[in-house]
């Protein structure tokens, strides 16, 4: 076990930090993006308009059933064929957003459908439009139900962002590979990377647990 060197993390602190901060950025941007996109898709799926339903369903079913790696490759290698140039960071984050949105859409839809239809009817009867009913009555309640699910997706985003290493996306895993090329100490390099990920994901997973408990108590 002579190949573990604790000081390595300090020698390469700048690169670890650069990757760490990028990973946080990627995850947050993708979370916001996939929440917005996911909400739109969820509304599409339950809107009283068949073509929108079809689009929403197709989106969710297709994206959920193919690997994230393919989604990212489509953005990274596919878009240039259409004349759109994006670097690894942007196309990776976009890929994560599009992928995660399909899961968030399902969570939101489940949340919305958990709300009694009587409420929609009542709101519509008082003269609110479909869109107003959604944004003012249904979504705010649904969000409370889906918040833990979205928290889980955030944890997944942090973990999944490591895929950006494959498209030179400047995330934590990418920088780890660079540090490893210089030091030849994979055990040390990747153990520290694991710790950096845990620093982000473990508190988040406790937060989700807390949320779940909170809302359960509120419901009973």
């Amino acid at each position: 076990m002579g190949n573990f060197d604790v000081m390595l993390v300090f020698d390469h602190w700048d690169r670890y930090m650069a990757g760490f901060i990028n990973t946080i950025q990627i995850s947050i941007i993708a979370l916001i993006g996939s929440f917005i996109l996911g909400a739109i898709i969820a509304i599409f799926r339950i809107a009283p308009l068949k073509p929108l339903n079809w689009f929403g369903t197709a989106y969710v079913e297709v994206i959920r059933n193919i690997p994230l790696l393919i989604v990212v490759f489509f953005f990274y290698l596919g878009l240039p064929s259409l004349g759109i140039e994006l670097d690894g960071f942007v196309s990776g984050t976009l890929g994560l957003t599009v992928y995660t949105a399909s899961f968030i859409a399902e969570a939101i839809r489940a949340g919305i459908q958990a709300i009694p239809t009587g409420q929609t009817e009542a709101a519509r009867a008082t003269g609110l439009s479909y869109l107003q009913t959604m944004t003012h009555i249904i979504l705010p309640q649904a969000i409370k139900i889906v918040l833990p699910a979205i928290g889980n997706q955030f944890i997944n985003l942090v973990k999944n962002s490591s895929i950006l290493a494959v498209v030179a996306g400047m995330d934590l895993m990418y920088y780890a590979d660079l540090i490893n090329s210089d030091t030849f100490l994979p055990l040390t390099v990747y153990t520290f990377v694991a710790l950096f990920y845990l620093v982000l994901t473990v508190p988040l997973s406790y937060a989700v647990l807390y949320m779940e408990k909170c809302f359960n108590i509120a419901d009973n």
């Binding site: 990274y76 290698l77 240039p80 140039e85 690894g88 494959v166 498209v167 030179a168 590979d177 090329s181």
Partner: peptide
């Protein structure tokens, strides 16, 4: 400098204009 997993990846990235 952008680094890739292998030469095939790097060459594909060059062709994709990365």
């Amino acid at each position: 400098v952008l680094e890739y997993e292998n030469y095939q990846d790097a060459f594909t990235a060059l062709k994709a204009g990365k």
